[in-house]
Amino acid sequence: MSATPLLELRGIDKSFGPVQVLRDVAFSAHPGEVTALVGDNGAGKSTLVKCISGIYPTDAGEVLFDGRPVTIHNPRDAAGLGIEVVYQDLALCDNLDIVQNMFLGREKRSGVVLDEPTMEQLAAETLAGLSVRTVKSLRQHVSSLSGGQRQTVAIAKAVLWNSKLVILDEPTAALGVAQTAQVLELVRRLADKGLAVVLISHNMNDVFAVSDRIAALYLGQMVAQVKTTEITHSQVVELITAGRSGNLGLGAGSGNGSEPADATPGALR
């Protein structure tokens, strides 16, 4: 783990009309670590991710990437910084093969002609680099893959572009036990390769199996961001459902909950 976070958010506010969805949120993701982002439905996880990936503009707050303040206006800015999001519904085309999907919208070409051999080679290298050995042929249609394999392709697509931060939105939500283990192992490997990984999940087992840090959102506020080793299963559940647990969360420490990150043990700063 390194001292400066790859991505650091400070005081992020976001409202949709009269509804304030994010309130003074602080969040950080470190290279080489998996940061689990947890929270109940409507806590603001997806909104936070969309702010990071440039789909929503933020109302207030600063974003630091690699220690430099940046502004992310649209998904292209995010991609330019090296931020890739793997969405829950995968966004793969069933009628295209693995290579075609991985390069969709960013095809390599020589002149007007697609450079298929180069793309296939790069795809093979990326998958090999992730130690993925479960796909038989790179030229099989995505429709013939299992859920876990599809998730693998979606993740490989995200890391193909030398991305630095990969955000995974519930990657295991629709998977069986074996496939979940397969994807979690891949998530771990991404972090071990030095990427910063943000994992959104509802599943506490997954979170504890793979994450280094846990960030808990409660009604739009970041109530805790702690090391996974310093928190228990039931404490996380309490943070998610009640916003506080013991000396963690809302009302703990400084007492007003406005800077929850400072109030947490093993915190970022």
């Binding site: 966004a91 295209l96 919208g105």
Partner: peptide, 22 residues
């Protein structure tokens, strides 16, 4: 053999995925 053709298939297969791919 062209990116245009590839994109045509992509839109036909999953328009939302194609949109997200830019």
């Amino acid at each position: 053999r062209t990116a245009y053709g590839r994109h045509l298939y992509a839109v036909g297969g999953n328009a939302e995925a194609a949109r997200r791919a830019g």
